[in-house]
Simulated scan of single mutants.
Amino acid sequence: MKHSILAGREVSTWSEEWKHECEVQMLAELPLARRNEVFDEPGKGMKFKRGEVAVAYLRAEVDRYAMLRRG
């Protein structure tokens, strides 16, 4: 079990919640230009693979994660 900033509680490290938190944390740590490449790179970015709705959700989660980290 680990504390999840996004969930605000302990979660299993085997859970989808933890998987999501790790992905959001990794994205949040990237410089903005690189993060935008990961999201938007034509033909292979997340937008291509997961769709615009998923990327919009991840962008919002990255912002929320950063806000929660700042306290």
Rank of each mutant, 00 (worst) to 15 (best):
M46L: 15
V38F: 02
V62K: 00
L30D: 05
G45P: 04
Q25Y: 05
L6V: 00
R69L: 15
M1Q: 11
P31D: 04
V53W: 09
K44R: 12
G45A: 10
V55K: 13
L6G: 00
R69F: 11
R70Y: 05
F39D: 01
E61H: 11
S12K: 03
E17G: 00
V55A: 12
G8E: 00
S4V: 04
C22Y: 01
K49C: 08
V11E: 07
A28R: 02
A66V: 14
D40G: 04
L58V: 04
A60W: 02
N36K: 10
M46E: 10
D63Y: 04
K44D: 04
E17F: 00
K49F: 08
M67H: 14
P31V: 00
A66R: 15
E37C: 10
A54V: 11
R50Y: 14
D63H: 11
E29Y: 01
K19D: 08
R70G: 11
K19E: 11
E16A: 11
S15D: 05
T13R: 02
K2P: 04
L58F: 06
R70M: 12
R64V: 09
E23G: 12
T13D: 06
K47A: 14
A33W: 09
L27G: 04
S12F: 05
F39V: 02
V11H: 03
A56P: 00
H3L: 02
L27T: 01
V62E: 09
A54D: 13
L32S: 15
A60K: 07
G43L: 09
E17Q: 06
C22R: 12
K49D: 08
K47M: 13
G71I: 00
R50W: 15
R35T: 03
M46Q: 13
W14D: 07
F39A: 00
H20R: 15
P42D: 07
E52Y: 03
L27F: 00
L30K: 02
R64P: 06
V55R: 12
Q25P: 01
G43I: 10
A33C: 07
F48K: 01
K19Y: 03
V11P: 06
W18I: 09
N36V: 03
A66Y: 07
R64N: 13
L6S: 00
V24Q: 02
M67C: 13
D63A: 14
G45F: 09
C22E: 09
W14M: 02
H3D: 05
G51E: 01
E10F: 13
G43Q: 09
V62N: 03
A60C: 03
R34D: 14
E52V: 10
R59Q: 11
K2Y: 02
S12V: 04
V55C: 14
C22I: 03
R59G: 00
I5V: 12
V55Q: 12
T13N: 08
E37K: 11
E52M: 08
W18A: 08
L30V: 06
H3W: 02
M1Y: 07
L30M: 09
K47V: 10
R69K: 15
G51T: 05
R70T: 11
A28E: 01
F39K: 00
A28H: 04
S12I: 02
W18R: 10
E37F: 09
V62G: 06
A33M: 08
K47D: 07
E61F: 05
I5S: 05
